[in-house]
Computed example of a mutant assay.
Amino acid sequence: MRVGIVGGGINGLCAAWQLSLSGCDVTLFERGVLLAETSSASSKLLHGGLRYIENLELRLVREALQERGWWLEHVPAHTSRLEICLPVYRQGRRPAWQLKLGLMMYDRLAGSFGIGRHRSVLKEALKSSFPLLKYEGLSGAYLFYDGQMNEQKLGQWVIGQARAAGARLIEQCPVSRVGVDGVIEHANGCDQFDLVVNVAGPWVCELNQVSGVNSHHQLDHVRGSHIVLGREVDRGYLLEVPGERRVFFVLPYDGQTLIGTTEVRQDLHDRVHCSCEERAYLLAAYNHYFSSPAGESDIVDEFAGLRPLISSANDPGRATREYAIERCGQLVSVFGGKWTTARALAKKIVREVNHGVH
């Protein structure tokens, strides 16, 4: 079967890899450079999504935890286990019992794919265990584990796997139309496929719309920005934004400190960048918790990505992180998707292809 894929982000590349392994003849079209858009601007985590438990997205959390374990086991050169501190402050929006319950569920959902169970830190050990944190108001803390990746190197590993399996990956080739008849019109001409997979990330709905294809799902385009400080941090931290229920990460990365992320809706065609307001927002959140404050001069890098979230809530923080696969004739469209679950999503695309054959 000849399969054409539109989109060279991590979900498209994993689809090309898995479809090629299943015996399909795969050609992937990327309008720019592979992995240069949303997939290059993540928090560098391979995680189950502890906060998704609050939205009761238990299926997604379980799948992501299993996939986290797969990446860590099979690509250890570019992934690692990361210890993360979840401190409990008296003024926090979530009481200790609620955090404990969430961590217990996180461990349980991981099952045999767990990489270490959470544990509590004794109150008398808080100050010595977390010397970087402000101690005032700190009433407890938990430690748990997630995965971290070298995003660029892991992405290149996936590209290598896809090519080794036989996939053709064509860069600098924008696609102008996809058809339910299996046609892809692109910068180099027009090709007929047995099946087309539109996995263009934030642009999936727009491509379907200009192609005259109706979609049952719609996307919210949410910008997630990060800043990087030129200082080291001893472990990862998961913290509440002061005065809000949303959370943010402070993470060690390449000897520096990665802080993120924000959630700001924006138009698909606006420039994706970390705004001055977001930079100030992240700095203020960091300085609320850490005893050595950071200023603008401490920021050595910043980046932002546009996340395609399935429209489900007015508040982007409450929007589902699930993904969806929709089929119309010989066109399969993918809505949403995350780095951690890209391989699992690709396997579902393979099943969709096989189901269509039979």
Rank of each mutant, 00 (worst) to 15 (best):
M1G: 08
R2P: 00
V3M: 01
G4L: 00
V6D: 08
G8N: 09
G8Q: 11
G12S: 02
G12M: 03
W17Q: 05
W17C: 01
Q18H: 14
L19Y: 07
S22V: 00
S22F: 06
G23R: 06
C24Y: 12
V26L: 01
V26G: 03
T27F: 08
L28Q: 11
E37H: 15
T38W: 03
S40W: 11
L45W: 05
G48Q: 05
G48A: 10
G48V: 03
R51I: 05
N55G: 15
E57R: 02
R59I: 02
R59W: 09
V61D: 11
E67Q: 15
R68S: 10
E73Q: 10
P76G: 10
L82H: 09
C85S: 07
L86K: 00
R94E: 07
A96E: 14
A96L: 11
K100V: 00
L103M: 05
M104V: 11
S112F: 01
F113D: 09
G116I: 10
V121P: 01
K123E: 15
K134R: 15
E136N: 13
L138M: 15
A141K: 03
Y145C: 04
Q148N: 03
Q156E: 15
G160R: 14
R163F: 04
A165M: 13
L169E: 08
V180T: 15
G182L: 13
G182Q: 10
I184D: 05
E185P: 12
G189K: 04
G189W: 12
C190H: 08
Q192E: 15
Q192G: 03
F193P: 03
F193A: 02
D194T: 06
L195D: 06
L195S: 01
V196L: 07
V199G: 03
C205F: 05
S215E: 10
Q218A: 10
Q218H: 12
L219R: 02
G230K: 04
R231D: 07
D234L: 10
G236Q: 04
V241R: 12
P242M: 04
G243P: 14
Y253E: 10
G255W: 12
E263D: 15
R265V: 08
D267V: 01
L268D: 08
H269P: 01
H269V: 01
D270K: 09
C276W: 07
E277R: 15
E277W: 12
E277V: 05
E278R: 06
R279H: 07
R279K: 13
A280Y: 04
A280S: 13
Y281G: 07
Y286E: 04
G295E: 06
D301H: 12
A304C: 05
S311A: 13
A313R: 07
N314P: 02
D315G: 06
D315S: 10
T320I: 12
E322Q: 14
I325T: 08
E326G: 04
G329K: 03
G337Y: 00
T341P: 00
A344D: 01
A346T: 02
V353W: 14
H355T: 03
H358F: 12
